[in-house]
């Protein structure tokens, strides 16, 4: 059961990646999704700090090397920890993060069905 839910969630979220909207270049797309670690709540893309500038270069270099998005994210996560990506992946640590709202939604729906008579 658990595996099926996992699979469904996984499929759902991989499909949704397609709307990581309108960025023109790949660097922009990736750096928008990275936290500038030395800033206060800014993405690498939005920041002009030294850290952000060097991160942009790193991402550019990796893309030029022909790396896939996932490889770049994995590389950065290995180096800086999961904190650097804004899009938390589905794993043991974040399973509840993704599922609590959905569970609550189902639960709320059941409550309403109980409260309402279908006639």
């Amino acid at each position: 059961m658990f595996k099926i839910i996992n699979l469904v969630l996984f499929l759902y979220f991989t499909f949704n990646i397609s709307y990581a909207n309108e960025t023109n270049t790949k660097v922009d797309q990736i750096t928008k999704n990275l936290r500038c670690l030395i800033c206060q709540g800014q993405s690498v893309y939005d920041s002009q700090s030294d850290f952000a500038i060097s991160m942009k270069l790193v991402v550019k270099k990796k893309i030029n090397e022909g790396k896939e998005d996932k490889e770049i994210y994995d590389y950065l996560k290995n180096k800086y920890g999961e904190w650097i990506v804004y899009d938390p992946e589905l794993n043991r640590n974040t399973f509840l993060l993704w599922s609590i709202p959905l569970i609550l939604f189902v639960f709320g729906g059941l409550l309403i069905v109980r409260k309402v008579s279908i006639k």
């Binding site: 920890g81 904190w83 650097i84 804004y86 938390p88 640590n93 993060l97």
Partner: peptide, 15 residues
């Protein structure tokens, strides 16, 4: 463990 929850999370769940 430190994770970041940013716009992609909210977009994926809310939209």
């Amino acid at each position: 463990s430190k994770i970041s929850v940013g716009p992609p999370f909210y977009n994926n769940l809310l939209i």
